[in-house]
Design a protein around this nucleic acid. Structure first.
Length: 891
RNA sequence: GGGCGAUUAGCUCAAUUGGCAGAGCGCCAGCUUUACACGCUGGAUGUUACAGGUUCAAGUCCUGUAUCGCCCACCA
């Protein structure tokens, strides 16, 4: 046994054990060892990222699952890695360049990409090191990066496969365009945010009609009118029956607009007329397709107005909006300005307002991929926890839209499509092409765009194991066990991984998806750097320890809910660590050379006291409960269970009880109690290891529970035993009931002192009148521990004691414990207290009597409920009777 | 507009199948008890958001209302 210092120094200890685990290769997984696989793939953090509390939550959960399953003997792999995060990373590097006064164009494509790689070498390891600080037991030998050659090959392979199946196509569509990042975004990457805006009603002159005739259209984006090509009406709208055939003049531009009739137009909304701008609105684009209209793009890639905007060319889009409105007003063509609140798309990377814009992009046809992904949730092959997220998932799948996968940036997987300028051939290829696949001309060029970052992430569960090669790892570990993630990336990532898994592996990528909430600050606001409420978890780990942070988070992690993390919550974990530490020190102080074989402890039924039996039983119950809670992803219940076992059952009761043995002189009992305590403590450490890996390892080693060089992290998870097995040690329902009773007696004794304002330390005489005859001799035998725990001067166990006769020199608590207090008590005060107690009891009794005399209750309630209620009623009645007799005796 | 979640002690949250409403923090009183004051012992605190309903029995199930939060959506 290694003697423990007085205080626990978490920082050194945590670093020491992490290094020791790494040195021993303890996180490494090996498919060839067989067994039952359990695979978790990390949601790869952005390579640019730094650790925030959300990562801590996410990775603590994964680490708990992984460590627990590993202890259960599963062949566990936790696959780590980072994501190249196309737009985010490119933005970061461009930012750095900007400080040097350069742009990416100054460098050119190749040099820029080179620069990003250099940047990644320098800063890319930050978050990985932070995860290690947290204790994540990933198999770091396998660490992947989405731009690794292997993973890139998987991306290309998937692209080519889908291309050849015609599930990938290139087309002109309205997409979300970020003018700042200057790239297309997928629908998911444009986050709608309600903004207070305006609805401008604009008068368009009708030519060929009466002089001064106008129609009115409404728009939230007046600048797009510069690209109008038509006005649309509902064919059934009689108000405008004579409009078709007439031409309309577009103000400011002078272009003639045709009138089209389309069912899309809602007669009831606005004026019933819609301006049609096919190049800048998805619905208008659809109408444009149906009616063969030209699309006039009036904007540039950077959000300024383009040359087709005529005199407005070069203006910023929002400046142009103001100018257009002002110009219209001057012409008297502004009919009305209405306040209007509507969702405006924002770039999820930089919050810039995105511009719906006609653009030539690559898309994945999603519908064929979605159906199997719907089926697997409906038939239970994929289990989403908590289940309500299934609805969100299915809703999205069932209304799926094609995925825009091309990005106009440089950092990422370049689209493996080639164009031949000689023969116009277009093809996709796995290998970099140098000549045309059709005419062998060397006059070819590769598509300039790169793929959406998520196009590599959706392959993560199998690309990381070497796919498209059929590796042993892949065959053994796929499909994974649990995917742990926040709800914010269900669409981005989870849904798409399921689709890819089913499409390319024919199997779901994981069996369970555990969706956790997000961490908010103490005001309930989502934590983010932009909001300035970012707290650095590393600071928390430095101040309180990684274990404390992990444990505290789990204590408040209700299934699938958001959680708030105030600073004093973390103290709960820190305090718990200290409690553990001191419990260990207590044992060492009794005997610092005592070694127990934890797996095969010597329990002699003849030597075990009822307290010993009770704590063994409670440990056993906790083992079962913890296992069940983890199986059901009830992390807060799991954490609370160990907390209660260690703090309240082991420390508050058993350790306090043990002092009556240790301070005595029965050596065989001392040995037995110390054995029990070590066994309970060691098993508690095991139960706790998944959530508090460091301190449990330190204590496990210091206490000498394992053989030299053995880690608790590789120990076997404890298994609970049936009651019948426990009976071999004399652990029976009767014993457990007795200990409950005994503890009630002790509490009653303490309450007596507190109520009578007697100092807790003052030793008093007690009389115990057991209700249960069988407990008379047991209580007598337990006198030493009762004396200690009640701080008694003397204890008399007397089933025949008559409190009524002894009054007014004795008082009672809970009907069983009496204290002779000759001349000490204030009779009036005691009477008042007893009367109050009686009132409360009679009130309760009335409630129970009412219930029990209700014929419908007696008729319809299940028997065990009635019996239970009746028992409870009788308890209250007998207590009330005793109290009332005492009142009589006192008065 | 559609959907989801929340509303329980001063605060943060539990409560399995409907069956005695709990914990931590905070608060109050006491304690240098030979593991721990990051501790020990005891205590106070509830119209379970509101209004109905179902039931012998509702925090829990149903209907509606309010407030807050989130997600989705092409009403210009």
């Amino acid at each position: 046994m290694k003697e423990l210092s007085k205080a626990y120094e978490s920082k050194d200890v945590e670093a020491k054990w992490y290094q020791a685990w790494m040195d021993a290769n303890a996180f490494h997984s090996d498919a060839s060892k067989g067994g039952e696989p359990y695979c978790v793939v990390i949601p790869p953090p952005n390579v640019t990222g730094i650790l925030h509390v959300g990562h801590v939550l996410n990775n603590t959960i994964q680490d708990i699952l992984v460590r627990w399953r590993r202890m259960q003997g599963r062949n566990v792999v936790w696959m780590p890695g980072t994501d190249h995060a196309g737009i985010a990373t490119q933005n970061k590097v461009e930012q750095a360049l900007k400080e040097e006064g350069k742009t990416r164009d100054d460098l050119g494509r190749d040099a820029f990409i080179e620069r990003v790689w250099t940047w990644r070498e320098e800063y890319g390891g930050t978050i990985i090191n932070q995860l290690k600080r947290l204790g994540a037991s990933c198999d770091w030998e396998r660490e992947c990066f989405t731009m690794d050659p292997g993973l890139s090959a998987a991306v290309t392979d998937v692209f080519v496969q889908l291309y050849e199946k015609d599930l990938i196509y290139r087309g002109n569509r309205i997409i979300n365009w970020c003018p700042r990042c200057q790239t297309a975004l997928s629908d998911e990457e444009s986050k709608g945010e309600d903004r207070k805006g305006h609805l401008w009603h604009i008068k368009y002159p009708v030519s060929g009609g009466v002089e001064g005739e106008f129609i009115t259209v409404a728009t939230t984006r007046p600048e797009t009118m510069l690209g109008d090509v038509a006005v649309a009406m509902n064919p059934a709208d009689e108000r405008y029956a004579d409009l078709p055939g007439k031409t309309i003049t577009l103000p400011l531009v002078g272009r003639e607009l045709v009138v089209i009739q389309d069912d899309y137009v809602d007669k009831e909304f606005g004026t019933g007329l819609v301006k049609v701008t096919p190049a800048h609105d998805p619905n208008d684009f659809e109408m444009g397709q149906r009616h063969n209209l030209e699309s006039i793009d009036v904007m540039n890639e950077d959000g300024t107005m383009g040359e087709r905007a005529g005199e407005y060319a070069g203006m910023d889009r929002f400046a142009c909006r103001k100018k257009v409105v002002a110009d219209l007003e001057e012409l008297g063509l502004l009919a009305e300005i209405e306040g209007h609140s509507h969702a405006v798309g924002q770039c999820y990377r930089c919050k810039t307002i995105v511009e719906p814009r006609l653009s030539l992009q690559w898309f994945v046809r999603m519908e064929p991929l979605a159906q199997p992904a719907i089926d697997c949730v409906k038939d239970g092959r994929l289990n989403i926890v908590p289940d309500r997220w299934s609805n969100t998932y299915l809703e999205w799948m069932e209304n799926i839209r094609d995925w825009c996968i091309s990005r106009q940036i440089w950092w990422g997987h370049r689209i493996p499509v080639y164009y031949c300028d000689a023969c116009d051939h277009q093809w996709a290829a796995r290998e970099t092409a140098s000549v045309c696949a059709s005419c062998s001309s060397a006059d070819i060029r590769q598509d300039e765009d790169v793929l959406d970052t998520w196009f590599s992430s959706w392959l993560w569960p199998f690309s990381t194991f070497g796919w498209p090669e059929e590796t042993d790892d892949l065959n053994f570990y796929y499909p994974g066990g649990t995917l742990v993630t926040g709800f914010d990336i269900i669409f981005f990532w989870v849904a798409r991984m399921v689709m890819a898994g089913l499409e390319f592996r024919g199997e779901v990528p994981f069996k369970d998806v555990y969706i956790h909430g997000i961490v908010r600050d103490d005001k309930g606001t989502k934590i983010s750097k932009q909001l300035g409420n970012f707290v650095d978890p590393i600071e928390y780990m430095d101040e309180y320890s990684a274990d404390a942070l992990r444990f505290s988070l789990m204590m408040i992690l209700a299934l699938g809910h958001d959680l708030k993390l105030p600073k004093d919550q973390i103290e709960v974990g820190r305090n718990f660590g200290t409690k553990l530490w001191n419990a260990a020190r207590f044992m060492q102080m009794q005997d610092n050379s005592f070694v127990v074989d934890i797996e095969n402890p010597v329990f002699d039924p003849a030597l075990l006291s009822s307290e010993d039996k009770s704590i063994i039983y409670e440990m056993n119950q906790s083992i079962q409960a913890c296992t069940e809670h983890l199986e059901r992803y009830r992390f807060n219940d799991y954490a609370r269970e160990v907390y209660d076992l260690v703090w309240h059952r082991l420390c508050d009761w058993y350790v306090e009880y043990s002092k009556s043995v240790f301070y005595g002189d029965d050596d065989s009992r001392k040995k037995q109690v110390l054995t029990v305590m070590h066994v309970v403590f060691a098993n508690s450490l095991k139960l706790l290891h998944p959530v508090m890996p460091f301190i449990t390892e330190e204590l496990w080693q210091s206490m000498g529970y394992g053989a030299e060089g053995d880690f608790i992290m590789l120990e076997r998870w404890p298994e609970s035993q049936e009651m019948t097995a426990l009976a071999a040690f004399g652990i029976t329902e009767d014993v457990l009931a007795y200990v409950q009773d005994k503890h009630a007696v002790i509490r009653a004794g303490r309450m007596l002192k507190a109520d009578l304002n007697i100092q807790a330390a003052k030793k008093m005489a007690y009389i115990i009148k057991p209700e249960n005859e069988a407990h008379v001799s047991l209580l007598s035998e337990d006198e030493p521990s009762l004396m200690m725990l009640m701080r008694a001067e003397s204890i008399i166990v007397d089933p025949a004691f008559s409190p009524e006769a002894a009054m007014p020199s004795a008082v009672l608590r809970l009907g069983t414990v009496y204290m002779p207090v000759d001349g000490v008590i204030d009779v009036a005060e005691e009477l008042g207290r007893l009367t109050k107690q009686l009132d409360k009891l009679s009130g309760e009794l009335k409630k129970f009597d009412g219930k029990l005399s209700n014929p419908q209750f007696v008729e319809k309630a299940p028997e065990e409920v009635i019996a239970q209620q009746r028992e409870r009623r009788d308890e209250i009645a007998s207590e009330a009777e005793k109290v009332s007799e005492l009142i009589k005796a006192l008065s």
